[in-house]
Each structure stands twice: as structure tokens, then as C-alpha cells.
Simulated assay, not measured.
Amino acid sequence: MAFENILIEDQNGLTTVTINRPDKLNALNKATIKELSEAFTQLENDDTTRVIILTGSGTKSFVAGADISEFADFDEEQGTALAATGHDILFNLIENLRKPVIAAVNGFALGGGLELAMACHFRIASDNSKMGLPEVTLGLIPGYGGTQRLPQLVGKGKAMEMILSATMLTADEALQWGLVNQVVPQEQLLETVSGIAQKIAKNAPLALSKAIETVNAGFNKDSDGFMTEVRAFGYCFATEDFKEGTTAFLEKRKPSFNGK
């Protein structure tokens, strides 16, 4: 996969996707969103990829927000289309991807950058990270899922405070609020995330996929999370991975899953 704005690195079943616009603090523009969409779609169908790590280039910024210059003169119809397209081709895609996606937040994650991190299945942050949704200072609201995903992570009251005041959180505050799972020194970020990803990658791919689907169903008002769990649980019994996992357990050996 060859891209202009992102880098892809594969290593032992782990694929790192790096947003590479350091001169713009990795801000999201249309081209980068399109490339990310194409990359995640391809990786979802790549049998060699077990876990995906999403990060930004350098040590200053994960994604510093959307590229405001691209939409500063938009009208209502164009703004609506901008948000709808982003939801469709990237943010919802990542949230519902069949493979685990971990955000390695290295520095600023603001606006669309924080929304991108929140679309990932969980987040690990470097100690120099700063996170916020400053859209109201531009006369906007978060448009890439921030008003929906942030309350799920930190609760309605804290989300309201953060969005309405445009408060920027430090990494430690984000950890305290439940926005990130861990905070580590900048130089240890990718090593820490890779270690977690390696643990995940050892598990059954189809079970991981169904676990993601089921947890997400619990936050979807149009889904019955419990029934989704029941069906997904039953589905796993028909997989080769289930047979391998239970056989390996009984034989007191490590399983070797093939994702079937």
C-alpha cells in the first residue's frame, strides 16, 4: 500500500498506521481521511494483520484536528456532507472494524484528532498528550462523533463540561476521566502499545471480532446487546478457532489460531 499522507508498517501480525503530516501537526484533511479509509479497509481483509496501531508522526501530535482551511468557506449543505462522509468512510469504519484498533496518542489529539482516537477500540497516551474538543471556539460542534463517543467514555456530565468549555485535558486528567487506558512516557509509548497488541494478537481472531461487535452493540440504541452476545457466542462454537482453543486447553498447550 502506497500513500502520500500515511505510513504503513507490518511486523509479526501487528500493523502500525502512522498519520504523516508533521508540518501540519498531522491535521486531518480530505486526502488523509480517504487514505485512512482505504488503508483500514484493506487491513481488515488482510489475513496477516491481527491488530492495528494508529498513531501520528513525531512526538508533538497524534492529530491536531481537522484542516480548517479546507472547510472555512463551507455552507450548511457542504458542512453536513463533510460530517456524514467522515462518519461513513472512516470513524464508524474504525469503530466497527473486525480487527482490534489501538490509538497510540502521542501529543495533541484535538477536535477531529480526539474523535479519531475515540473511534479506536481503546487508547494509550504519552505523558505529553493534550486532548480536547475545541470546536465551539470556532462556532461549530464536534462533527465526527465527538458528541456521541465522549459521553460513552467519560459520562454525560463530564462530556458536557469538556465540549461546552472547550477544555483541553492533560494526559493524566484524561486517564482520571477514563478517556485513555494508560499514560506512559513518550519514549515508551509504541513499545507499550505493541506489547498490549501482541497479547491481543495471540487470541482467536474470530472471537476478537465478535467481542468487538458485541460490545459495540450495547451502545447502539437500535441493537439488543444481549441478543447480539447470545448469537455471537453461538457463532463461535462453529469455528475452527473454538475447536483449536478448547483442544489446546485440554492438551495443556498453547493454541495456534487460524482465524477460521
Rank of each mutant, 00 (worst) to 15 (best):
V184K: 08
H121M: 02
F108A: 13
F3T: 13
E173R: 10
K24W: 10
M162I: 15
F237C: 07
R98I: 11
K30I: 12
L90Y: 06
G195N: 14
D241W: 05
V183C: 04
L189Y: 08
I124L: 04
K202C: 01
E191K: 13
Q42P: 03
I52N: 05
S61D: 03
A84G: 11
A159G: 09
T48K: 15
I102R: 03
L140V: 00
A104C: 07
A104N: 03
E4F: 09
Y235N: 06
T137W: 06
A166R: 03
T239L: 03
L140T: 04
S223Q: 15
E76M: 00
T137Y: 10
G56W: 01
A119T: 03
N45E: 15
N26V: 02
A125Y: 00
G107F: 00
E135K: 01
K202T: 05
A83N: 02
G113D: 05
A109C: 03
L250M: 11
G139C: 01
G259T: 09
S126I: 04
S194L: 09
D47L: 14
V183Q: 05
T32M: 09
A84Q: 15
L28S: 11
N106T: 02
S57T: 12
K202D: 07
Y235Q: 05
L140F: 10
Q182I: 05
E38A: 14
D46G: 04
K30G: 14
L14Y: 09
I196H: 09
E213I: 06
D241V: 10
T85W: 12
A109G: 04
L14A: 08
A232M: 12
V51Y: 08
A64L: 06
V136S: 08
V17T: 10
F3D: 07
E76R: 09
A238T: 15
D73N: 14
Y144E: 08
V183E: 08
N45Y: 11
A31I: 12
G157T: 11
I102G: 00
G218M: 04
L140G: 01
F40G: 03
D46H: 07
G157A: 11
P255F: 03
K99W: 03
T192A: 09
I68A: 14
P151K: 07
V184T: 11
L90E: 07
Q198W: 01
T247Q: 00
G146V: 08
I8H: 08
F62A: 02
A64N: 05
A201R: 01
I212S: 02
E76N: 08
G86N: 04
E191R: 06
L36F: 03
C236Y: 15
V136M: 05
G107Y: 07
M131H: 02
A83T: 10
E244Y: 05
S256E: 14
N92M: 12
P142G: 05
Q11R: 15
T239F: 01
T59E: 15
Y144D: 00
V230H: 04
K60W: 02
A103L: 06
A2I: 14
F226V: 14
I89A: 00
N181L: 12
V183W: 07
A104D: 03
